[in-house]
């Protein structure tokens, strides 16, 4: 008899497979990120209905095909469809970037319950918010923290002594993991300059909950600087540019 697995999961990506099936990438609570085959899922009368749509959180019953090393979806029941993410292009684009983060920056079959809960809560918040860009920036900063690359924004991340001077521009280095004091800035060339407003917002978005970050008013300059800092960190630690971020810029422009 095949071993069955019951777990909750959120669909990150779907691809067409054979005549009428779908190959899914699901981030599950118990098994981490897995690939699973849903036979006949593309048929209009499929028993899976919309339970296998991207961003949908469902309760799954899988079995593993030992020969192919692939999970096969036996049953799926919707818990949260997150329908609100389909009908607003900025929310859809932001949710796609979030899903791409988990698809690209997590290890296959590595259980991480905290990350699962965080992703689920982020999608819920994105569905409700009036400021999807703030939620996305906050998600990216919190994701870096969960992954162990949280930004050090108080003391200098190089010497650990000096901090930033209030009201002045400062430098943030991905290599050292955060802000640099004036003395270390002179030695470190590869860093991003940000203004005092962006630094304050960066700290707020990283530390505060989504409920508060949704109310933050971000001007284009600060938002651009924060995106540059995050992009610099992602490039340094993951060395991979997310395709979804380019598409998001196209959709929301």
């Amino acid at each position: 008899m095949q071993p069955y697995h019951k777990t909750q999961g959120i669909v990150l990506k779907t691809r067409k497979y054979s005549e009428s099936s779908k190959l899914l990438t699901i981030y599950t609570r118990e098994l981490g990120r897995i690939n699973a085959l849903a036979k006949g899922a593309r048929k209009i009368k499929s028993r899976f209905g919309s339970s296998l749509e991207v961003f949908t959180e469902s309760k799954f019953l899988f079995y593993k095909q030992p020969s192919a090393g692939l999970y096969v979806v036996s049953q799926a029941q919707i818990l949260f469809p997150h329908e609100g993410l389909y009908f607003a292009n900025d929310k859809f684009a932001s949710a796609s970037v979030m899903a791409d983060f988990l698809y690209t920056h997590t290890v296959q079959a590595e259980r991480h319950e905290e990350l699962y809960r965080f992703f689920r809560d982020s999608l819920k918040e994105l569905e409700l918010t009036g400021a999807p860009q703030n939620v996305l920036l906050s998600f990216m900063l919190k994701f870096l923290t969960v992954a162990g690359y949280g930004l050090q924004l108080k003391a200098c991340s190089s010497c650990g002594k000096g901090g930033t001077e209030p009201g002045r521009d400062c430098r943030i280095s991905a290599k050292h993991g955060g802000v640099l004091c004036e003395a270390c800035s002179r030695k470190e060339g590869d860093s991003v300059v940000i203004g005092p407003a962006a630094l304050k917002a960066l700290s707020f978005l990283q530390e505060k909950g989504y409920k508060l970050t949704g109310n933050l008013k971000l001007d284009d300059t600060s938002s651009g600087e924060i995106k540059k800092v995050i992009g610099n960190f992602l490039q340094y630690y993951y060395d991979y540019e997310l395709k979804s971020m380019r598409v998001m810029e196209e959709i929301i422009k």
């Binding site: 899903a99 698809y103 395709k243 979804s244 380019r246 598409v247 196209e250 959709i251």
Partner: peptide, 11 residues
């Protein structure tokens, strides 16, 4: 269709 995860945008 628009699929950010596959890098397919409106353009």
């Amino acid at each position: 269709s628009i699929s950010p995860l596959d890098g397919i945008g409106p353009e």
